[in-house]
Design a protein around this nucleic acid. Sequence first.
DNA 1: CCAATGTATCTCAGCGCTAAGGCATCCGTG
DNA 2: CACGGATGCCTTAGCGCTGAGATACATTGG
Lengths: 185, 185
Amino acid sequence: MWLTVTSSLRNLAGIPYPGPVADHVDRVVAQWGAERPELDVSPMEVFGRLKRLYRLVDAELNRTFGEHGLDAASFDVLATLRRSGPPYRLTPTGLMQSAMVTSGAITQRLDRLEARGLVTRTASDVDGRSREVTLTPEGYALIDRALPDHLATEHRLLAGLDDAQTAAFVDAMRTLLAALGDSPK
Amino acid sequence: MWLTVTSSLRNLAGIPYPGPVADHVDRVVAQWGAERPELDVSPMEVFGRLKRLYRLVDAELNRTFGEHGLDAASFDVLATLRRSGPPYRLTPTGLMQSAMVTSGAITQRLDRLEARGLVTRTASDVDGRSREVTLTPEGYALIDRALPDHLATEHRLLAGLDDAQTAAFVDAMRTLLAALGDSPK
DNA sequence: CCAATGTATCTCAGCGCTAAGGCATCCGTG
DNA sequence: CACGGATGCCTTAGCGCTGAGATACATTGG
């Protein structure tokens, strides 16, 4: 691990990555070094890879979702309801906060899931403005079937990282999320 | 650093994160632990945070782009042309590969940029199918103005990470990108 | 109790992207 | 050289999301 860390540190200091694998971001950073040598573009090492990694992972995860007739948005709603525990019921606002999308997006996601019979929407007893979104038995069965496959895909994607790398990865993201104000609830 | 790594390792082993800051993903993992205790949901520690971090960072970066009348898609095209060096000219296919979007998306991005006078599209001399997309002086001036602000935003976002954390973060992403087949060109 | 403000959800126009396909051009092979 | 497949770019329908706003209901303070 120390060898790897040392390599990346050299890279951050502006010394080209010496490893056998130069990736897209290495190329981008090298180009900027030639064109705007006075600028410190080292943050691109992080954010360039974050973007590419997110997009590639997203495509890969959607492949698994597709095998169950779902996409990431639908899976997200069903999984959020499922993991909330009995009675597998949340409000649109709760789903909105968890998914980090607008209320309009949740309305449309629920329209689609309701049309497929995977969730129901009922009026709230205690708040006339609010609705209760409940997982149907069909929705429950579907998410419980899809989840193990999804986890298998995630495990497979992480196979190339050892425990220390994974832990350091999580640690860095946890720190950045805290700085960006991400918090539970 | 070792303390932090140790904490995350304990977390990966299924022991709740003991730190003072529990984030959204900690909560998700705890819920799954209660509902599906037989499943190893530890990869969610990585991919849940990757998604949330990407979305928050993307929103933050777009704020800076917006100050220059741009969004991430437009900035990406202009920056790709700018860092390619004189004569700041690439084909739509080159831009497509760099941006990881479809050809239709590039066509539309170029329509918008061309309408604003930030790039030009001309026929290729050597290949009748191909086009040459060139940065105009206005496009050049705009990206050179926006880039320092963009880098300042990225530096600010990384302020909470020390060098070792940053290097480990980059190392993990580089490994995963290689496993996913991301390569230059 | 009322008025003012806040909250929960839905509506809808507009945006950028994808997927599929069209067209022109290039290139390798027989 | 002719032909068939590959390539480069564009077109278009459709999709999911955002942002702005509408509606209905809840809460707060006087």
